[in-house]
Simulated scan of single mutants.
Amino acid sequence: MEDNTKQPLTADASLYNGQPSDTGLSCPSAGLTSRTPSISKNKGGVSVKNVPDASKQWFVLRVSYGRIIKAKAFVETKGFECYVPMRYKEVRKQGKKRIITEPLLPSFLFVHATAEQVETLLYEIKVSTNESRNLLSYYFDHTSQRQDNPDRNPPLTICDEAMNNFIRLTSIKNPHIIPVTTEIIQYKLGDIVIVTEGDFKDIHGRVARIAGQQRVIVELFDGCLVATAYVPKEAMRKEKSITLLD
Results as ranks from 00 to 15, higher is better:
F166N: 07
S144K: 14
N149C: 06
L169C: 03
I167Y: 02
N164M: 05
Q145E: 14
I184D: 08
Y187S: 13
I178L: 00
T143A: 13
Q186D: 12
D148E: 15
S171A: 12
T143V: 05
P175M: 10
P154M: 15
L136C: 04
R152E: 15
K188N: 11
S171M: 05
D160R: 13
I177V: 10
H176D: 05
I185Q: 00
P175A: 09
P155F: 06
T143D: 12
D148M: 04
I203K: 07
V193Y: 11
I194N: 03
P150I: 14
D141A: 04
S144W: 11
F140Y: 14
I178E: 07
D160K: 03
I167M: 03
D160Y: 04
R146W: 11
H204C: 07
Q147H: 14
T196V: 11
K173F: 04
R146I: 09
G205M: 02
I178D: 00
F140T: 12
P150E: 14
Q147G: 13
H204Y: 15
S171V: 01
P175F: 02
I158K: 03
T170R: 05
I184M: 10
Q145G: 07
G190T: 09
R152I: 11
E183T: 09
P179V: 02
R146C: 08
L156F: 08
F200K: 07
T157G: 03
P155T: 09
D141C: 02
P175T: 00
E197W: 06
T157K: 14
S144Y: 06
Q147E: 15
P154I: 15
L136T: 05
I167V: 11
N149H: 08
F200S: 12
S144Q: 15
L189F: 07
L156R: 13
S137N: 07
L169G: 06
P175I: 03
N174C: 10
P154K: 14
P175R: 14
A162M: 10
R152F: 12
R152K: 11
G190Q: 10
E183P: 00
T157Q: 14
I192K: 07
D151G: 11
S171D: 09
Q186I: 01
I192G: 02
H142C: 03
V180Q: 01
Y187M: 10
N149I: 08
F200P: 10
D202M: 01
V193E: 02
P179R: 03
V180W: 05
N165M: 02
G205A: 06
T157R: 15
T170G: 06
I185F: 06
E197L: 05
T182A: 11
T143P: 02
R168M: 06
I167Q: 01
D141R: 01
I172A: 03
N165C: 00
P150N: 13
F200R: 05
Y187R: 13
D202A: 07
I184Y: 01
P150L: 13
G205F: 07
D202C: 10
N164D: 04
V180C: 04
D199W: 00
K188Q: 08
T182D: 14
T196I: 12
T170Y: 02
N165R: 03
P179K: 06
P150G: 10
S171T: 10
E183A: 04
K201S: 09
N164Y: 04
I158G: 12
Y139D: 12
I158A: 13
D151P: 00
L169M: 09
T181W: 01
T170C: 06
